[in-house]
């Protein structure tokens, strides 16, 4: 499988608040990676640039529901079309480009963009979604998060958060913002960018949807002043040293995903099952999920399962109780708020 995967073109979704500096950052990437041909799909997906050269003007936003009747399986029809055209172009000329960056507007919902890479089979065969990177304007973040539904979604969906304009806020405000972001999305590392300068390694080839990636929970998640904001996007982390019963955990996920599919934006688990010597890893976006066997547990290693759910208005207490019941033995989970 890995050989096939490597042949796929990596795709980064670059999103962020209005005025946060996405375009500055994008220009920086294109400048620094001048040896690499990057296809850029911008804004309303109407414009395709390769190495900043504008090629196509076309189209308005199209949200398409797939005919399997699942509300979560919405994809972007305009994106499917453009990625299809790009693929044909690359079939004729393999040197045309080796990477795609999609820059969405500050108002676009990332879910249908991300799901396009999983739901549409032709797109999934040609492209590999690497990560959703969200640029957050530190100066205006608090207000934007308070007022903007889309800003909340973009933080919740992110595999990595880039903080811009940090020099315009004092350290106390920085700390509050970092803690707030970590509570909303504890699995996305937060990095700083200055005037569009960011180590490219922090942006590309992150493996945000990869099952091999280690599930890191941001330490800021344990911050104290937790109840300052009533964010619509929140996260829930569950850890346990007791193994899961595979059938029970599966039943929990089946029920949870079915009843909260719209609100469950991202989730990931690295879990220990009774009698299984490998980690079992799963990750999902709304209703689409992938899973694989991870690394084997080492001899004598604490087999700690970690699960993180990010979404809108998730019933945390219900989740926790149901997950506790899915464990093989009764054993209190480490309390994590």
């Amino acid at each position: 499988m890995s050989v096939l995967q490597d042949a796929k073109v990596p795709v980064t979704i670059l999103t962020g608040f209005l005025g946060a500096g996405k375009t500055t950052l994008l220009n920086r990437i294109l400048h620094e990676r001048h040896g690499e041909r990057i296809a850029v799909i911008e804004n309303e997906f109407g414009e395709i640039g390769i190495d900043n050269e504008l090629l196509v003007h076309d189209g308005s936003e199209q949200i398409v529901e797939m005919n399997n009747g699942c509300i979560c399986c919405t994809v972007r029809g305009d994106l499917v079309r453009i990625l299809g055209q790009l693929r044909e172009r690359r079939a004729r000329d393999p040197e045309a480009f080796s990477r795609v960056i999609i820059e969405t507007t500050g108002l676009a919902d990332p879910a249908p963009v991300a799901q396009t890479f999983f739901i549409d089979e032709d797109i999934a065969a040609a492209y590999r979604l690497d990560a959703v990177v969200t640029v957050v304007d530190a100066r205006h973040a608090a207000q934007q998060l308070d007022e903007s539904h889309e800003a909340q979604e973009q933080v919740g969906f992110a595999d990595r958060i880039l903080l811009s304009k940090l020099d315009l806020v004092d350290t106390a405000e920085q700390r509050r913002l970092r803690e707030r972001l970590a509570r909303m999305n504890p699995r996305a590392p937060v990095r700083e960018v200055h005037f569009g300068a960011a180590p490219i390694g922090e942006l590309l080839d992150i493996g945000g949807f990869s099952l091999d990636a280690i599930l890191e929970i941001e330490p800021g998640f344990l911050g104290e002043d937790a109840h300052e904001h009533d964010d619509s996007v929140q996260s829930f982390v569950f850890r346990s040293g007791a193994p899961f019963d595979a059938d029970r955990l599966q039943a929990f996920l089946r029920e949870t995903i079915a009843s909260h599919a719209r609100d469950l934006m991202r989730y990931k688990g690295v879990v220990a099952f009774a009698g299984v010597d490998h980690r079992i890893v799963f990750q999902g976006v709304h209703m689409v999920m992938s899973a694989d066997a991870g690394r084997p547990w080492a001899e004598g290693e604490l087999r700690e399962s970690k699960l993180v759910f990010i979404g809108r208005g998730l019933p945390q207490r219900e989740f926790r109780e149901a997950l506790e019941r899915s464990l093989l033995q009764e054993s209190p989970a480490a309390p994590v708020q």
């Binding site: 599966q250 089946r254 209703m287 689409v288 899973a291």
Partner: peptide
């Protein structure tokens, strides 16, 4: 493949149904 990989796939299919399984 391995028994663990097969377990993981079955686990995901049982959780979201075969139509929603992402190949990995």
């Amino acid at each position: 493949t391995s028994p663990e990989q097969l377990l993981a796939k079955r686990f995901a299919i049982g959780s979201v149904g075969p139509a929603h399984l992402i190949a990995s």
